[in-house]
C-alpha cells in the first residue's frame, strides 16, 4: 500500500466519521466543529486527486466563511434542539423504511454500474499535468468564459442589493459611527476617567 492510498483511507474514514458526528452530536456547536473537520478532510481528498485549487477554495470558503457563519448562527440563535428532536422515535419506523428502500436502490444501481474503460484512466489526473489548476482556470475564466464570469458577478450583486433592500432599516435612535465627527473632536471634549479594575463604569 503506497502513501497516497494510506492518506486516502485516513481522510475518508475521518470524513465519514465526522459527518456522522455532525448529525448525531447533542451539542449543536460540536456539530459545526465536526462539519469543519469533514470539510478539511474533503479538502485533503481533493489534494490527493490533484485538484489543489478546489482544496484551497474549500478551506477558505467553506471552513473560513460558511462554517464560521454557521457557528455564529448556532451560538446566537436560541434554538431548542431538544424540542426539535421530539417525536424522533415516533417517526423512526417510517424513516427507517425509506432509508432501507433507498439503500436497496443504491445497491442495485451501484452493483450494475460499469465504468467505461477510458473513463477510469481519465479520472483522477489533470488534463494538463504540467500546469497548475489555478493557472488553467485563470487562462479560461477571463477569456473564454468572461461572459459567464461577468453574468455571475451581476447575479451576486443583485442578491446583495436585494438583501440590503429587504432588511436594512434606518432607525432614528441607532448610534452610528461618523468618522468625520470622530476626527473633528477636540482634545478638550474628551474627559479621562480613572476606572477601577472589575468595577465597571
Amino acid at each position: 500500500m503506497n502513501a497516497a492510498a494510506a492518506f486516502f483511507y485516513i481522510f475518508s474514514t475521518v470524513m465519514i466519521g465526522s459527518a456522522f458526528m455532525v448529525i448525531s452530536a447533542r451539542n449543536p456547536v460540536h456539530s459545526v466543529l465536526f462539519l469543519i473537520l469533514a470539510f478539511v478532510n474533503a479538502a485533503g481528498l481533493f489534494l490527493l486527486l490533484g485538484a489543489e485549487f478546489l482544496a484551497m477554495i474549500i478551506v477558505i470558503v467553506y471552513v473560513g466563511a460558511v462554517a464560521v457563519l454557521f457557528l455564529f448562527v448556532v451560538m446566537m440563535l436560541d434554538v431548542d434542539f431538544a424540542e426539535l428532536k421530539q417525536g424522533f422515535l415516533q417517526y423512526l419506523p417510517v424513516g427507517a423504511l425509506i432509508g432501507v428502500a433507498v439503500l436497496i436502490e443504491l445497491v442495485l444501481v451501484v452493483g450494475a454500474w460499469t465504468m467505461a474503460p477510458a473513463a477510469i484512466g481519465a479520472a483522477g489526473s489533470p488534463v494538463q499535468p504540467d500546469i497548475s489548476n489555478t493557472l488553467a482556470l485563470g487562462r479560461v475564466l477571463y477569456t473564454k468564459h468572461v461572459y459567464f464570469f461577468q453574468a455571475a458577478g451581476l447575479v451576486l450583486l443583485t442578491a446583495m442589493i436585494g438583501a440590503i433592500v429587504l432588511t436594512l432599516r434606518h432607525k432614528p435612535d441607532v448610534k452610528r459611527q461618523d468618522i468625520g465627527e470622530q476626527n473633528a473632536r477636540d482634545k478638550s471634549d474628551v474627559k479621562l476617567k480613572k476606572v477601577p479594575s472589575r468595577a465597571g463604569v
Binding site: 461572459y147 453574468a151 455571475a152 451581476l154 447575479v155 443583485t158 442578491a159 442589493i161 436585494g162 433592500v165
Partner: peptide, 17 residues
C-alpha cells in the same frame, strides 16, 4: 444552457426582491 441559467437567475433574483 449556462447562459440560459445565468440570465434566468439574474431576472428571477431581482423579481423576488
Amino acid at each position: 444552457l449556462i447562459a440560459l441559467y445565468l440570465g434566468l437567475e439574474l431576472m428571477s433574483l431581482a423579481l423576488y426582491v
